[in-house]
Design a binder for these strands. Structure first.
Lengths: 249, 249
DNA sequence: ACGGCCCAACTGGTCTGATAAGTTGACCAC
DNA sequence: GTGGTCAACTTATCAGACCAGTTGGGCCGT
């Protein structure tokens, strides 16, 4: 089976394009909070699309709490820092030039460090033998794929996905989905930096063992050790890059 | 100044109503993952609204990762547990009969316990004197309003909002917004249960002091102590209610 | 029987142009 | 200054059309 890397052709609908343009302008600060949006008719004319497409885009902006809409008046831009939810994070990761925003990167790694130990602990409490078997199977695969960094990265992500699926906490689970979406945007750039973490099968194995025995504290401990490897590596890399004036990617 | 409690009259647009109906059906499991949605034209006829309203609603479902849309075929329901983001949490808090979903409630309190200590620590590191002054002013107000539970609740939330605003972590900040939206849905029901936490000005004061001195570890410690008060109180209350077979609200 | 092709009947995507309904500010009468 | 009226905005909703992609059935040549 030839594994040629194809990527899905991008087919963005008009309203998607309008949404992306407006959301970008808001998240980058070009449209500051309180600023009224142009009228729907104006926008549709300026962008060369029909009004329906503009309305669909604005409905989505409204759902993301980027704008407030009210009949009779112009929509106004909201302060996403105080109103927006975690789903905005992927849109903040890349700046105008497509470079990674290092502050966002540090933020998400810090949040990961906060949640991961508790996720591991909860999974150890609720997961049971079945989960432990799945984790061990995954670890076996990681040992076989030790040569391919990208394969390791994918397996590590799946390892945590399995933990979070079985930890019995819906908030952890949804937050994990949001964070993963941000993370995967930068995954290629981070693979090299985080490789020490991907190769740390020791702590992952300890987590799997703790899950098998239902030892929440042990799982928490090794979960913390594991993610701190990546966080510290990333912070060191970013410190070096920033002090040197350079930029990732 | 007479403070009569007025509340804004609710004016839900048609597309909002369509969105809510469909999102509810998906989140409650009436439309399981993989199930195709009715065609837009069918829906608009069945619901008695214009197709544009249906399209706006479906665009929002798509953004929330509740459905996948592709031209030429029906939209299909996605598995929100593996795709959805933290912004879905408010929609999961209440079940069909408007009762609180206790598992969701426990989940969000656990996540709060994971994040709050690190938020306090980060705020202590980055906040500075200005933040400490704001926090102390807020504490002063809380001491004056000690009689009103709802006032205390509001101030406590603002206390944490200030911490998260100054902790320099955008992921914490956005997650806080998402969680707050869930929390405020149930705030009235939880005021009584969480009152021990609202009255715990001691740990909040210790956090403010730690912020003033830039002591991250002290802030983390007292942050943990503070939120654990509420979490344990809630878990005890839910245990009692559930073993008794009763329901909150 | 099988693979390839075409076509009709779906689906969502886009467009036009109209009417209803809410907001705002200027103006005016009291 | 208070309240009413009106014109000129805005968004909300609608009907009906056509474009474009998907699907499945049937026909055909092999």
């Amino acid at each position: 089976m030839a594994r040629v890397a194809f990527s899905a052709v991008s087919k963005e609908s008009l309203s998607d394009s309008v949404y992306r343009q407006l959301a970008d302008k808001i998240l980058r600060g070009d449209l500051p909070p309180g600023e009224p949006l142009p009228a729907e008719r104006e926008l549709s004319e300026a962008l060369g699309v029909n009004r329906g497409a503009v309305r669909e885009a604005i409905k989505r902006l409204q759902q993301a709490r980027l704008v407030a809409v009210r009949q009779g008046g112009n929509s106004v831009v909201l302060d996403y820092l105080n109103e927006g939810g975690l789903e905005l994070l992927p849109g903040l990761l890349l700046n105008r030039q497509g470079q990674l925003n290092t502050a966002v990167l540090r933020s998400i790694m810090a949040m990961r460090s906060s949640l991961a130990p508790d996720i591991a602990a909860a999974a150890a409490q609720k997961g049971g033998i079945a989960l432990a078997d799945e984790l061990d199977a995954l670890l076996e695969q990681m040992r076989r794929d030790a040569g391919s960094l990208r394969a390791l990265q994918g397996h590590a992500l799946l390892f945590w996905r399995k933990l979070v699926q079985h930890c019995g906490n819906i908030a952890f689970r949804l937050a994990f989905n949001s964070m993963t979406r941000t993370y995967t945007q930068a995954s290629a750039a981070m693979a090299a930096v985080l490789q020490a973490e991907f190769r740390d099968l020791e702590n992952l194995g300890a987590i799997a063992a703790a899950v098998r025995r239902g030892e929440a504290e042990a799982a928490r401990h090794h979960g913390r050790l594991h993610v701190e490897i990546g966080r510290e590596a990333l912070n060191r890399a970013l410190d070096a890059v920033e002090s040197g004036g350079g930029k990732i990617q």
